[in-house]
């Protein structure tokens, strides 16, 4: 028994020594030999384990690449959105540059500070009294009217937008046939972001799509700033006046960089600045006025000719009377009687 135990012990010791010696040889052998032995083991007895490890690595790589694909897809989506935002901002800035060029002077460009939660009808501008911004200065974009400066600090100012309950602007249809007061449509839901034009005379009927601009009445907003587009008439208890629902020309999400008009510019007016509005309107008016002028001119000429004929006839009869009666010949001043017809000549 003891001999068996001693034999086992010697066998164990021998095995350990052999393994240790082989291990040390594997450790200290040249790199080329180690790689050859490792390659031989991988190609023979360890082949199943190598394949198993390769498959596990493939699974791992698939999982990682899936994550990479998802991350790349997310990054692409983010880039797409940012590109769209940049393109829209570029369009806005180009339009604002065009507006600046038309205004030439008397304005201050401003950026918006981030809106505070719950304060959706007020915007904070990055310009203040140090650059000439004053209370009641109109705030505009290339599309039209945004609102009015309500408070100014030295470097910032806050403005109410057209959606603010206190917002009012005297407005008119672009063909100047209807005047009224534009104010927020204080409804609920999405209609809260519309405007209404109150106090329009009952005889003045506006079609859907008619552009409404500021009328210039009052000292705050100069004449000709687009405010909204008529989208329908509201039925109200007031039977002597009409109320129209307007879609604002500056939508809330489109309020980006803005221009603040200085008081001098307000007094000077903005005629021709929103050219798409004023030019078309003035051209139509000019054509109409020209037509009226020609008609009036023809009537005046005819009137003058008739008057001349009558005068000459009267002069002849007076001359004859003078000749007959020997009285003094006082020729009437026909020129004084010849005047423009009622209405005048424009």
């Amino acid at each position: 028994m003891a001999r068996n135990a001693r034999g086992d012990s010697r066998l164990d010791t021998g095995l350990v020594l052999v393994c240790l010696v082989l291990g040390v040889i594997a450790l200290v052998s040249p790199r080329r030999v180690r790689e050859q032995v490792a390659a031989a083991l991988r190609a023979t007895v360890l082949m199943p384990l190598v394949q198993l490890e390769a498959r596990a690595s493939t699974v791992r790589a698939a999982v990682v690449s899936r994550n990479d694909v998802l991350q790349a897809r997310g990054a692409a989506v983010v880039d797409t959105f940012s590109m769209r935002a940049v393109r829209e901002e570029n369009t806005t800035l180009r339009a604002l540059l065009g507006l600046s060029a038309r205004l030439q002077d008397g304005f201050v460009p401003a950026e918006l500070l981030p809106q505070r939660p719950g304060d959706e009808f007020t915007i904070t501008l990055t310009v203040g009294s140090d650059v000439g911004v004053e209370t009641f200065s109109p705030v505009v974009t290339a599309s039209g009217l945004v609102g009015m400066v309500a408070n100014t600090d030295r470097h910032t100012s806050s403005a109410i937008t057209w959606a603010h309950p206190d917002f009012r602007v005297s407005a008119m249809s672009v063909d100047q046939t209807a005047f009224g007061i534009v104010q927020p449509h204080l409804a609920t839901g999405a209609e809260r972001w519309l405007l209404e034009m109150r106090g329009v005379p009952f005889r003045a009927k506006l079609d859907t799509g008619t552009l409404v601009v500021s009328s210039g009445l009052g000292a705050t907003y100069p004449r000709g700033i687009p405010v909204g587009v008529v989208i329908g008439e509201l039925s109200t208890p007031e039977k002597w006046a009409r109320t129209y629902l307007l879609r604002p020309v500056v939508l809330p999400e489109a309020i980006g960089p803005v221009l603040v008009l200085k008081p001098a510019r307000v007094q000077q007016g903005v005629n021709g600045v929103w050219t798409s509005v004023a030019a078309a309107d003035s051209a139509a008016r000019a054509v109409a006025v020209a037509g009226d002028s020609i008609a009036r001119k023809a009537a005046f000429d005819e009137f003058t000719a008739r008057r001349a004929v009558l005068d000459s006839l009267r002069a002849d009869s007076l001359a004859r009377a003078d000749t007959i009666g020997g009285g003094s010949a006082t020729r009437p001043d026909s020129a004084k009687r010849v005047g423009p017809p009622p209405g005048g000549l424009r």
């Binding site: 393994c19 240790l20 082989l22 291990g23 040390v24 040889i25 594997a26 450790l27 200290v28 052998s29 180690r34 790689e35 032995v37 490792a38 390659a39 083991l41 991988r42 007895v45 360890l46 384990l49 190598v50 490890e53």
Partner: peptide, 17 residues
């Protein structure tokens, strides 16, 4: 150890020993 080392030839022999 030899099988582990065979898949990591740089440290061949270390795990074995």
């Amino acid at each position: 150890g030899l099988s582990v080392d065979a898949l990591a030839p740089d440290s061949f022999g270390t795990s074995t020993l």
